[in-house]
Design a protein around this nucleic acid. Structure first.
Lengths: 223, 223, 223, 223
DNA sequence: TATGAATGAGCTTTCATTCAT
DNA sequence: CATGAATGAAAGCTCATTCAT
């Protein structure tokens, strides 16, 4: 938790520090991030850092929380589909939102991704978030079964694992595959919008047929 | 690339150094691994390290190559099924082999996993290996389509991505979920063999139905 | 010397600051005492400290003076015996008083003791106080000779040195030897009152016979 | 305990480092001694210090042990008097030796003195040494009683306390009183030899008469 | 080849002190 | 008078790397 001093800072200064901190962690990872480098980049005194934060860990957790809040706000900008409908519609909504946010905030996304992949301190926050993700997907799938959209014989553990493993690295994959500026990547009518939607289609098709109740006629999905 | 000096070492000494290096990287990660700690643990002189390797990066890549070779040897111990048969039989073979190897070499597996997840130096090797994995899966899937086992409309990129993302973290997931000693985990008749096979079944079912040509009668997979 | 600001403070606030300052110096010693820690404990602003004192040294000397005054007041509460009588009666009075005060104010006593033992700044104050102590004892001893209570051949320097060296650490010794709460230690009828009086007897006996004119019959002091 | 590296150093370099370390601790005390200052003075790299010692504490204890050994060697150069004789003869021997050593090694003596006075880390070594001193004096006094040199009614605790308290700071007192170069102070025929012996006489007289069995005729000690 | 002492840059952290509000 | 943000010097300590033996 940052010290009150940090929140009393002028908005632009606080924002600049956070931005450079994101830069630092994204560039060097949790373990090799350096307070010295950060304060040099930010043009503030070494001692000032400790007026704002307890230590690097404090700043790190601040960044992760910040990322979580920002992503939540971003997702809420587009209302989610009716949960009684197919969970794949829901997934598509979430997928568009997540990728949109992460492509718009690639460095912050990279930090969160690495945190969930085992970089960063092993304790608390991260472990909880991984578990929360799995739990969330399990619940979503269970609801899907209840509403008759999913195969009742589905192995929930396996399915939640597939979802987590697949969706987490998705935007990193996109960013690496399409070597473009992030902002160009997801602009609604941008040059890659079609390509991305195609990938979403392919992905969701696999998941849907892998997990869903597929009537024979639905098999001709991509005529 | 290690220097010739390293290969002239007595076998046991060379093995001990590699083993402790694995320990060091697995325990502290690529960025926080320390030559000082390693030579102290190995009981060799600081200078000797530089007789064997250029630097930590050199050793790191050596370890990754070593892991690759060992895994290849391990997999080849069990002959793969006929590639003309269902790619899911092939996948199951590979899955059993991979998980078996990684659970038998948890620290080495952890290093490789973290390397592929973005720890380690961003350059060369790692990126290549990720690409190689994707390419390998793409080829496997293409062959599956060719032989009529897979839906010809399958989005190869999406499918290869799902496979890569799902199979890479699988053994880490298993190790975390089943809180047991690694060696107990995969012993053929061990206490968790059934549980693991069930997870494999669930996983392959999803992938198979998501990607395959599913005859209607196969839908009752787990009666 | 504290600044006037300090004396204009509400009594309770001023007292609290002094009390916490005593705590700080007693706990960490002169050299490791920290303004930062003190103001944090006292809940005052960093800058406020400098409104009250020049620096840590200023506060330190204030504490020492304060201790001196308090001790003087404490001693005067019990009227000293007639100086024309044996200086050992006088010593016993002083001893009781000193030990009583120091045991009642252990942290303040500890600071003063360490100051006189060479902790603290080498300059001025401390040296003076040590010299003053010696001078005081010399005068007392000289008066004892004058009044015929002491051996006229007594080496005044040696004797004053013995007194100073012996009495200064006395209460520290008592506190360390008897592992009890300070307040229990000197309560008139307390469990250790007898033990302490016995030590006083032993001590004064040695000093008296070492320095005094001892009539043969007084040799049977502790039948 | 210093690391082996330190003992492999050339003699003169090792000696210079120890000497400057003594200087550092004597000048600034245990708590304010600084590795940075020391290495600057010694002209060695910061890192080199840590090749020799674990940390400041390690060096500090090394110095104390070194002082103890040197003093023991110094004392053994003059054979002690027969312990069956008066303990005051023994005391005089010890006193001459101690003062001689401490005046010849004033800074080392100051460090040890401050250590025994409560500077330095509270743990182990120091507490033990204080207790050892008291025990040693108690034993000496008990032997004195046994051999009939001391008053059998003597309070051993009180007496041992007087001895410890008096003799410990003696050379510090001498050094402060006689403002001379240490080496001039104890040279056998030096300008202050007589003065010092006189102080010894005075001191021992007090102790002897305070603790001893004084036959009436011995009372005329300084005729 | 093996050694391990030497090095200095770099790290995190604490500190007393100043000063604008 | 009170405040607390800003500062940079200085601390202890670790590190990879070099090099003479």
């Amino acid at each position: 938790m940052p010290k009150p001093t940090f929140f009393n800072l002028p908005d632009d200064k606080r924002a600049r520090i956070l931005d450079l901190a994101i830069e630092e962690f994204a560039a060097h990872g949790y373990r090799a991030a350096s307070i010295s480098r950060l304060v040099a980049a930010a043009g503030i005194a070494k001692g000032s850092f400790y007026q704002y934060f307890d230590d690097l860990d404090d700043l790190y957790h601040t960044l992760l929380h910040l990322g979580g809040e920002q992503k939540a706000r971003y997702l809420q900008a587009t209302p989610p589909p009716d949960p009684a409908m197919s969970p794949f519609d829901y997934l598509r909504w979430m997928l568009r939102g997540s990728v949109g946010f992460e492509v718009a905030n690639p460095r912050l996304a990279r930090i969160a991704y690495q945190a969930l992949m085992g970089d960063g301190p092993a304790e608390g926050f991260v472990t909880e978030m991984r578990a929360a993700l799995m739990t969330f997907y399990r619940a979503m799938l269970a609801r899907g079964i209840e509403y008759g959209h999913l195969d009742p014989g589905l192995d929930l553990d396996a399915a939640a694992f597939v979802l987590t493993s697949t969706l987490l690295p998705l935007s990193q994959y996109l960013l690496s595959r399409i070597d473009l500026e992030p902002e160009d990547l997801v602009r609604p009518g941008g040059p890659h919008a079609a390509e991305i939607e195609a990938l979403f289609d392919g992905l969701l098709h696999i998941l849907e047929h892998g997990m869903g109740l597929h009537a024979p006629e639905k098999a001709t999905h991509h005529g």
